[in-house]
């Protein structure tokens, strides 16, 4: 009888000890999943005017393979929102409105192309403007040269 009581006390102590030891560490493995809930696509024309009511196609890219994921239309501010697919971090967004078309690759792990969007200013592209005038001068010069050579002959 005494042996049984001793054994049960021992078992009780053992269980208590185990509980005490195990308490701080939960038996469950903790998995934290960060999920981006919503992606925003912004479409605007050069000059800064938003592309309103434009057709949007979102392609999901997984392992280099592209498949059409969603289609929709931009709102009054040229914005389109979509929920990303779990496990897919690369997308290609194609926006099209009456003959105008633009596309942008979006990579969730690489900052969502915001840098590119910010770089494209909405003001006058002065450098390109002057470059254009320069080219024109060059073309005019070449044209005149060629014509002059023809006249000499």
């Amino acid at each position: 009888m005494k042996a049984i009581r001793n054994l049960s006390v021992f078992a009780l102590v053992l269980i208590l000890c185990m509980t005490l030891v195990c308490l701080p560490a939960s038996a469950h493995r903790v998995v934290v999943v960060g999920q981006v809930h919503e992606m925003q696509v912004m479409a605007y024309y050069g000059g800064g005017a938003p592309m309103v009511d434009a057709n949007v196609e979102i392609y999901a890219i997984k392992n280099g393979q592209e498949e059409l994921y969603l289609t929709g239309k931009t709102d009054a501010e040229g914005l389109f929102y979509f929920e990303p697919k779990i496990g897919v971090s690369e997308y290609r967004a194609v926006v099209e409105a009456t003959g105008h078309k633009g596309e942008e690759f979006v990579n969730l792990t690489a900052g969502a192309g915001v840098a590119g969007a910010e770089q494209e200013g909405t003001g006058l592209p002065l450098m390109q403007l002057f470059a254009g005038f320069g080219y024109l001068l060059g073309i005019a010069g070449i044209a005149m040269l060629l014509k002059a050579r023809k006249m000499e002959k």
């Binding site: 000059g47 006058l124 592209p125 403007l129 254009g132 005038f133 024109l136 001068l137 073309i139 005019a140 044209a143 005149m144 014509k147 002059a148 006249m151």
Partner: peptide, 19 residues
């Protein structure tokens, strides 16, 4: 050859107009 300068100037105007 006389047309070239005028062509260039008008082209510059058309080029910039789209901005």
């Amino acid at each position: 050859i006389d047309d070239v300068p005028k062509l260039s100037v008008i082209t510059a105007a058309v080029f910039v107009a789209s901005l």
